[in-house]
Design a protein around this nucleic acid. Structure first.
Lengths: 223, 223
DNA sequence: CCAAAAGTGTTAGTCATACACCCATGA
DNA sequence: TCATGGGTGTATGACTAACACTTTTGG
């Protein structure tokens, strides 16, 4: 291998894959680019990392300034994408983050420049954002299997059917209702409340809450 | 949050956690630093990433130039460590890599400046290298459970006891010999050969090989 | 013949899976 | 009273975990 000039250094950006579940579909937040390259097309929100901040801060800052989504959401670093060709402007590496947001915290920010796209049919995204999205989707699926992350996609109170829907949508296959309830309750990560969800045209569902609304890994896998 | 000057950018380095198994212990490769800060102390091999190369290339390049270890080893990106305070010289982020090396490929490079330290008692390392090492150790443990990575720590031919030793050392607990053999053989990731390992003062062991000597993830977890 | 590691099956318990009906409500 | 989703138990098969003795070699 040739020695390149040791003083030429790549620049660092962050990109955020913000997921939510809507209408029994896994969706990702996309924003319209304000600049070249790819002005006007929808991409993952992202931008340059600044000196003095962490990439995690940069990720949330970019998510906030580009989409308005803010406040107390789950996020975690995924992977650093660094193919020298990934951005035509030069060698720009990207630290990718995944954010999980309950729908209620996104809806009000939807606009002409901020949209939710079903992951199943986003099509091609600019840069290597399709690759980043694929990586994030896989990570989310895996993570669901050994942690309580589902809390970050649901409101404080939810029904078991809503919870099951989150699992089915992300795992991509149906789950038996009785087995799901047995399993999830035996893990002790959620607790029943006295409240019920009424006003639907069927039997009211009991509302549950997560025992802990912060990330925790489980001893034994769920699946 | 205040707007920092958008043109100040962090610099990018790579650090490599190179594991091997020796004497029934998980060990990590450390090299003596040639420069300030921390001249003369042992740290993970690493260095600046250059423009035009990927971080994966930078990781293997640094491993090679600082320790001599080369040629066809397993490596994967772990995580990007980016606390602005992690390096006193300024905001320098590090893309951490894990490398897995069979002992035979390391031994000849051991010297006054290159050593193997048991992970169980390395003590504190400079920078945030202890944190990086802890992260790598956890990743390795997890990965062992759903992939064939063990191949990367063993010679082409090995006995079942050697393989079991790798698992026990990394997982940190003993495994029942009969159950281990049953399980690992049922997965089909290794195959028996006709050869035996003789010359020991006990019954010769059959030698096995991995069906595939490249990374593969398993359908079902091993543990 | 002794020491050392190699090699080999069975059993009991636990866990995952498959499966169908009644209930409470709003319209 | 009908349509809709909420809520519940059991039985079977599969897998995990625990366990001890014989074999083959070198010294």
């Amino acid at each position: 291998m040739k020695s390149l000039p040791p003083k030429a250094k790549p620049e660092v950006t962050v990109d955020v894959v913000a997921f939510t579940v809507e209408d029994s579909q896994l969706k990702v937040l996309l924003v319209r680019r304000a600049r070249e390259p790819f002005v006007g097309t929808f991409t993952l929100p992202g931008g340059f990392m600044w000196e003095g901040e962490t990439s995690a801060q940069a990720a949330l800052r970019n998510l906030r300034t580009k989409s308005g989504v803010d406040s107390n959401i789950f996020s975690e670093q995924l992977y650093t994408f660094d193919d020298p060709q990934r951005d035509k402007r030069g060698h720009i590496i990207s630290v990718a983050y995944m954010a999980l947001v309950p729908l209620e915290k996104i809806s009000k920010h939807i606009s002409l420049d901020v949209k939710l796209a079903p992951v199943a049919d986003v099509g091609q995204l600019p840069f290597d954002h399709s690759q980043i999205l694929a990586y994030a989707t896989k990570r989310l699926r895996t993570k669901l299997g050994y942690s309580n992350v589902a809390y970050s996609l649901l409101p404080k109170l939810f029904t078991l059917s809503q919870l099951q829907d989150v699992y089915e949508v992300i795992l991509g296959h149906p789950i038996d209702k009785r087995n799901f309830r047995k399993k999830i309750l035996s893990l002790g990560i959620i607790e029943p409340t006295e409240q019920k969800l009424t006003g639907r045209k069927h039997r009211p569902a009991r509302l549950f809450k997560f025992a802990q609304r912060s990330y925790a890994e489980l001893e034994e896998p769920i699946f």
